[in-house]
Design a protein around this nucleic acid. Structure first.
Lengths: 229, 229
DNA sequence: GCATTGTATCTTGTATGCAAGATTGTATTC
DNA sequence: GAATACAATCTTGCATACAAGATACAATGC
């Protein structure tokens, strides 16, 4: 982790960026504790900078604080998970239906992104796979020319990845990747309405997995297990 | 400002909340400087807490920092303004088209909100008027049952109020209030598609009322003036 | 008068110290 | 042995001290 020191210097947002990327990559689990002291040692800075990064991540809905106990990566309840996915649906569907035109250059960028997704799928790099499948939505917003939407979607996508009940199998990942391709197809054919419909379906597939609630929250899991017996 | 001490105690988010509310009320102008020392005296806390609040507001896109110069309320460029309003349109239109049903109790809450807006209009309380007209959109999202959307809209709406102040919006408050009522009418009649269309129109009115030529940013204004000559 | 240099001051950037709640483990008491 | 009390430890909460860049202004030199 010493290689960080060079790049970390002089970038006050490096801590958040790393945490977001790790979460998107599935390398940080929901409910995971992020101790100020641990992070300050990892990034070789004082607790002050760690704390400031945590404040920003808190405002972005990625971490929560339990007073005098510690910082924890969010562990959305099923209800919160639905709200997050619903918000994404509203945002992404709204984004697609309000497109007026799209350039071939934009299509190319999106195609390349899906190509990377396919490569990650083929190579078996699960972290890269998880990251790219989530990042597609950010890429879409930014390619369509709206960084505000991109930034909102980065946070919502990260929160979606952190929904514990949504374990993504390799099969699901393939399906997601295909659906990304179909959305681009619709955009290329100048049919944003169809693209929006496909996005709606895509997100419903994600949400559907919530119905088979398996509770990975340790406390909830224990409670459920004990109530069952 | 001493009355704050009682309510401020034990609420770590009071600083941000007050700043957001002041911005929504039009009492804080875009570009306004928010000095850490000033705020720490106003809220009677150390700079640490002020800074932490600033970090959260920064992540929410309400303030920016100029290194070793100070914190400033955002002054969105024309392009950023467009992106913000476009993001709102996507979010709010998407939110309305994905409604499946709405209860009379929800309609009642929204009607009461518009009633408050009308009272503020009649009373001539400009701060309250500005606040309520912006807060309607947050209220709508929350009434529809999605606090995630509500929170996103609070930030986007705050930014929109700042944009309107920056570009000397000529938007008529009465008209806004009427349009809010019409959106509720459509919802009450079980026609979310029409509600979404009205929301689209509403936000287009907001954007249309902006005078993108009027740049109240001092530097930009100067630059534009000198280039023109 | 004008430019420049230096200096005082103001601002944020960062680290550190201490307070205080939360947790864990141990000893004590019955 | 079980429950309770207590102490050691770990964590964040908050304030403060100092560093260092930015700014404004006065002094200086020409």
């Amino acid at each position: 982790m010493q290689e960080q020191d060079k790049t970390a210097d002089r970038n006050p947002h490096i801590i958040e960026d790393r945490i977001i990327r790790a979460a998107l990559s599935g390398q940080i689990a929901p409910g995971e504790r992020l101790g100020e002291k641990d992070l300050s040692e990892i990034f070789n800075v004082s607790r002050t900078l760690v704390r400031e990064a945590m404040m920003r991540l808190q405002a972005r809905g990625i971490v929560e604080v339990s007073p005098r106990r510690g910082w924890f990566v969010i562990e959305p309840s099923v209800e919160e998970a639905r709200h997050t996915i619903d918000a994404r649906r509203a945002l992404e569907v709204g984004m697609l239906v309000t497109i007026d035109d799209i350039q071939p250059a934009q299509i190319r960028i999106l195609r390349e992104h899906v190509l990377s997704e396919q490569q990650a799928l083929a190579s078996g790099d699960r972290a890269q796979r998880s990251y790219l499948l989530g990042h597609f939505h950010v890429c879409l917003a930014e390619t369509l020319g709206n960084p505000v939407l991109g930034s909102l979607l980065q946070d919502l996508t990260t929160r979606t990845v952190l929904i514990a009940a949504l374990y993504q199998s390799t099969h699901d990942a393939h399906e997601s990747c295909c659906e990304h391709g179909q959305i681009i197809d619709a955009l290329e054919q100048g049919d944003p309405t169809e693209a929006a419909r496909l996005m709606d379906v895509h997100l419903r597939h994600v949400e559907k997995a919530l119905n088979y609630r398996h509770v990975s929250n340790r406390l909830e899991h224990l409670k459920a297990a004990l109530q069952a017996n």
